[in-house]
Design a protein around this nucleic acid. Structure first.
Length: 247
DNA sequence: GCGACAG
DNA sequence: ATCTTGTCGC
């Protein structure tokens, strides 16, 4: 586990954060097919908070895309860098997520984020932001439609309908299990929407949410719990480990 | 002006 | 996101 501070120059106000988005959005790459689903590595990232103690924990879990086996994982903890503001989620989550990705022992491949990419008020959600900062292909998978609209996909797993911002398609509502509420998929960086949907279907053989996010969710919650766990008394620590001498 | 609003 | 155990159902 690594520890993170809020990066120097990180936006302090909503106005600054929106200006950063308007600047960085121009660097999103949308004309690459991206990694083929079922090959190489796929990495899930997620974050858990303790607002009371001002602690945030992030996890990155790398899966073998063909077998969905976990091949590597890492965590990072830090201080909360921004309040939750719809449309500015990246400024709250990214510093710790970047630290967790940096701590991985292998290349992450495609990164699957909790939330949105292009489906965003300024077309620059968390997944796109992470992609631009790291250069990695990214997609967003959200559990709610945010401010967007959609028609219910047909019942079978794999059915999809457009996720709309007015008349503009910003993503897909994708049914990942028969008759279960869809997830909301959007492109982050360096891939396409059909490819993003194919990745999500590959990652959901059994549950509604991708295996990547399920693993990352479990791991970041555990990391948060450990980071906020009460410290053992010095005497108890000395008793538990006689090789430790307290100054 | 009011309400809604990824995690 | 988070508060939170057992429980009803396939």
């Amino acid at each position: 586990m690594t520890t993170v501070r809020v990066p120097a120059g990180w936006p302090a106000t909503e106005e600054e954060a929106r200006a950063v988005q308007d600047e960085l959005r121009r660097r999103v790459v949308l004309d690459e097919p991206g990694p083929a689903p079922g090959t190489g590595h796929v990495t899930g990232v997620d974050v858990a908070y303790d607002d009371e103690r001002d602690v945030v924990a992030a996890a990155a879990v790398v899966l073998d895309a063909a077998t969905l086996d976990v091949v590597a994982e890492s965590t990072a903890v830090g201080r909360i860098s921004f309040p939750y503001v719809p449309g500015l989620l990246a400024f709250r989550e990214l510093p710790t997520v970047l630290a967790a990705l940096d701590a991985l022992p292998c290349p992450p491949g495609l990164v699957v984020c909790d939330g949105y990419g292009l489906a965003h008020p300024r077309r620059f959600g968390l997944a796109s932001h992470l992609g631009v900062l790291t250069g990695l292909p990214t997609i967003g998978v959200a559990k709610n439609p945010f401010t967007f609209t959609y028609d219910a996909p047909a019942t079978p797993r794999g059915s999809a309908t457009p996720l709309l911002s007015g008349a503009e398609q910003v993503g897909s509502a994708l049914r990942t299990q028969d008759g279960v509420k869809p997830v909301f998929v959007s492109v982050g960086h360096r891939t396409t929407l059909p490819t993003a949907r194919a990745h999500v279907l590959t990652l959901t053989p059994k549950y509604r949410l991708p295996e990547t996010t399920r693993h990352a969710d479990t791991l970041c919650r555990r990391a948060l719990k450990e980071a906020t766990a009460p410290r053992p008394e010095p005497a108890a620590r000395a008793a538990a480990d006689p090789t430790v001498r307290e100054p």
